[in-house]
Design a protein around this nucleic acid. Structure first.
Length: 467
DNA sequence: GGTTATGATTGTCA
DNA sequence: TGACAATCATAACC
């Protein structure tokens, strides 16, 4: 628009002034009268041709351009154009604008640097991963997720750098192209180096805004990655069946005081270090054990009846295990002390308990003892279940039968107690809602001073064997 | 797709 | 600091 304006003003005013003022024009212009008018007309035609170049084909324009470049009036016209342009101050606007760094861009850069996307390749993102892991309180158990996280981060990093490189290359190419164009144009129109610089600045700003979009989307991708991999809620996986069983066994075998100590938790965590379901390959941590017990206590307390069956199941299960262990112990004892006495009540019972499923064991136990529980010393078995070896493969000391040749029914002390547990589930304070204190808590049900079983085996993880 | 189960988080309290 | 209660978010099941 300005070019046209300039041209028009050139034709109307400036040029005539230039012509009459004796600027660097051909000497023939100093002639007078009608000849002057003819020259003006000539210049007007030239300018008209210049203006018309844009409407012509490339070849036509090229040819015309060459003709004009060779025209004798060209230097004079060009200098006039330069003068006008300088006076009108059209050039170089905003060259030095926006010199201050964009805070948004700075934020993005900082974040990408912190996340290990930009910056040095070495250890890319590992610091961020480590920090995130520390924040989550995780340890080696998160290594798999973290390696996955790193892999994804590396992928993002690679895409980011590739795209960035592309943009930079495109920017350079475009800048070079524009500069060449401007240099070429500067032969026919006044273009100062500052203008070229200004144009380069504009191009760079345009490209940097595109880069900012790239950085922004990269940041978003990293955020999504973080939330997916490092937000524990998102990565929730159910524990494996075995792990749950281990935890449940402990819980129900310590129902009077289901508060494992740190050591017990560690032991449980170790014992549960079976891969959680869905093959994530993680192990259960101490804090997960704590969570599990916290949840379990609350949910058990909230709906005891619902857990009754489960409690029954684990009771029977543990009882059977205990009975088997007792039988084995007795067998060993007999083998070593009185090999001449091959038959003992335990052996038969042991065989009877070689059942396939826990349920069938449970049913058997129930059918065996429910009706005749009176014949077994339930009183002595009140918390027998508490002392049963549940998970650590530890001691059965409290389960050692009295090897005193009592009648068979009473000899199967452990089994009787197991039945007693079954009974207790219905009536014993330890396994009834009454086992909880008035506030629905366990703390008063088993005081710390009384929970340590003297018979607890060394190394046992039972931290809170009941009273 | 709705419901239930369950692991994890958060805020509060002792 | 650990336990509890409420809640969230997801998995699992129908």
């Amino acid at each position: 628009m300005d070019e046209t304006h300039i041209m028009q003003s050139l034709v109307g005013v400036t040029l005539s002034r230039a012509v009459h003022g004796g600027m660097a024009l051909a000497p023939s212009l100093d002639h007078q009268g009608s000849e002057d008018d003819g020259r003006k007309q000539d210049i007007g035609d030239i300018l008209h041709q210049i203006m018309g170049i844009t409407d012509q084909s490339l070849d036509e324009a090229q040819a015309k351009k060459h003709g004009l470049n060779c025209h004798r009036m060209k230097p004079a016209l060009f200098s006039v154009l330069c003068e006008i342009k300088e006076k009108t101050g059209l050039s170089i606007r905003g060259v030095h604008e926006d010199e201050a760094p964009d805070p948004q861009l700075m934020r993005l850069d900082n974040m990408l640097l912190a996340e290990g996307v930009s910056g040095p390749e070495k250890g890319g993102g590992s610091a961020a991963v480590a920090a995130a892991a520390a924040a989550l309180g995780g340890g080696a158990e998160n290594s798999i997720e973290h390696s996955d996280y790193r892999a994804k981060l590396a992928q993002i990093r690679q895409i980011y750098h590739t795209e960035l490189e592309k943009y930079e290359q495109a920017c350079n190419e475009f800048t070079t192209h524009v500069m060449n164009l401007l240099r070429e144009q500067s032969r026919t129109r006044p273009i100062s180096p500052k203008e070229i610089e200004c144009m380069v600045g504009i191009i760079h700003r345009k490209f940097s805004s595109i880069q900012m979009q790239l950085k922004q989307s990269t940041c978003e991708a990293v955020m999504i990655l973080r939330s997916r991999f490092l937000d524990a809620r998102r990565k929730r996986r159910n524990f494996s069946k075995q792990a749950t069983e281990v935890l449940n066994e402990y819980f129900y075998s310590h129902l009077s005081n289901p508060y494992p100590t740190e050591e017990a938790k560690e032991e449980l965590a170790k014992k549960c270090s079976i891969t959680v379901s869905q093959g994530m390959g993680s192990t259960i941590t101490v804090s997960q054990v704590s969570n599990w017990f916290g949840n379990k206590r609350i949910r058990y307390k909230k709906n005891i009846s619902k857990f009754q069956e489960e409690a029954n199941l684990y009771a029977a299960k543990t009882a059977v295990t205990a009975a088997q262990a007792v039988a084995a112990a007795v067998q060993n004892s007999q083998d070593s002390s009185s090999p001449a006495t091959p038959n003992h009540g335990f052996q038969l019972k042991d065989e009877e308990f070689q059942l396939d499923t826990t349920e069938s064991k449970n049913n058997l136990l129930t059918s065996m003892f429910t009706a005749s529980s009176g014949s077994f010393s339930l009183s002595s078995s009140g918390d027998m279940f508490m002392s049963m070896p549940s998970l650590n493969g530890g001691s059965y000391q409290r389960m050692q039968p009295n090897n005193t040749g009592q009648p068979e029914g009473e000899n199967i002390h452990g089994i009787g107690q197991a039945a007693g547990y079954s009974e207790a589930l219905r009536g014993h304070p330890l396994y009834s809602p009454n086992g909880l204190n008035g506030n629905g808590g366990w703390h008063e049900a088993a005081t710390p001073s009384s929970v340590t079983s003297p018979a607890e085996a060394a190394g046992s993880i039972h931290s809170d064997t009941s009273n």
